[in-house]
Design a protein around this nucleic acid. Structure first.
Lengths: 218, 218
DNA sequence: GCATGTTTTATCCGATCGTATCATTTTAGA
DNA sequence: TCTAAAATGATACGATCGGATAAAACATGC
């Protein structure tokens, strides 16, 4: 019967798997390594998850659920926002999510590079829906004059995602070479402002994204 | 004695290694897989390269050499260029290199994610020198009014690199979901223009990057 | 054409991988 | 407290990994 202890071990395994898969990718990870980090016997993984791949899929599902939650945090207020404010709101939450859980985009990046059945599953259940919605929303923002409209929506979307996520994927490199901790809260807000300043820049109506103003409240 | 045949097998192995490491990363690659792709017995790798790691290092050295070459292609003309023209020139060559050899940034991305002795070597011999020079040159471009100066140089650099490389790292995803081949020459030029339009935008002197004009000569 | 050093091939080894099996411990309900 | 189910632990297996070794094939200088 379900006792909470079941969920505990299961979630400990999931958490450890997120960390390990996020660090070394699917191929680089071993179930023994994950079990060690979770503090359980490696044979137990078979009980909670059918296979290594099943555990990996659970990680994606878990993390992408958290991402959706983060991005839609202020959805209730969207109706009362201008398109520009909505972009600013969503971008902020999206960047903060990536700072908190860099593993999702790390894992996705690991897998998107070469063909595999895992990539097919990942694409159908996660990447394609995400990219489809995101590109459409970029195109809409361009029509509304929020995003620059002289750049193809497809390129703008991928540049946007890359700009948002990559700094957290190379965090240890930045820490080592520049002594900057990109996960530091102030640094995350700075990154949000950098992206907004770059992508919103000067709007069609001549409105300019105020970088310094946005930094002040922090 | 050196016979050309030696170089042939060596370079076949190197080329295969670049492909395999670029696809599945260090952990995901096996020397047998590389040898198969090169069409040689897997035992031969030991003769030409001391170890799997040695082969991997050779890939980095080879690719980063090609990158330096590509970026400095028009170095002779730099003196006669404005800072803005220099940025446009270098960005173009850098993007075209990444379209031609997406493996370099794929391999680097694979490794930068978690600590390892390989990452230390990579950082000391490649990443740190590259990032150091690049950030300095971004800061200079900001001083010269070519790049927006309300964004920290560090952030701008990493956003720039991410924007430049990521579209080629997720090429198969874009092909599958949007039917677009980002390696197509016209698409590469479009991406260059997208990046320049975004980063140069409106210069300090009011000069605007002309997206449509840049597309014409192609 | 023979001897010599170079390159390739054919195996082998110990380690580790994912997974399966089964005994043991723990928990919940009667 | 006893029992059945749930959960965990210990162990084994076949496959594959990187690396090592020695024999075979090769080209080259004499």
């Amino acid at each position: 019967m379900s006792t909470g202890l079941e969920l505990d071990t299961r979630s400990k395994l999931l958490k450890a798997a997120v960390t390990v898969f996020g660090k070394v990718g699917y191929a680089g990870a071993s179930v023994r390594q994950i079990a060690d980090l979770a503090g359980v016997n490696h044979g137990s993984i078979r009980y909670h998850y059918a296979s290594k791949r099943d555990l990996w899929c659970a990680c994606i599902t878990y993390l992408s659920g958290l991402m959706d939650e983060a991005v839609h945090k202020d959805e209730a207020q969207w109706a009362s926002m201008t398109p520009r404010e909505r972009i600013i709101n969503v971008t902020g939450h999206y960047v903060r999510f990536n700072a908190k859980y860099p593993e999702l985009h790390r894992i996705v990046t690991f897998e998107t590079i070469h063909e595999s059945e895992r990539l097919d599953w990942l694409n159908e259940n996660f990447i394609r829906p995400f990219s489809g919605r995101a590109v459409a929303s970029v195109a809409l923002a361009q029509e509304q004059g929020v995003y620059p409209n002289n750049i193809p929506a497809l390129h703008l979307h991928y540049i946007n995602v890359a700009a948002t996520t990559s700094i957290f994927m190379v965090a240890s490199e930045i820490q080592k070479n520049f002594g900057v901790d990109v996960f530091d809260e102030a640094e995350v807000e700075r990154h949000i402002d950098a992206i907004l300043s770059l992508f919103l820049g000067v709007s069609e109506t001549g409105e300019k994204y105020d970088f310094t103003k946005m930094l002040a409240p922090k």
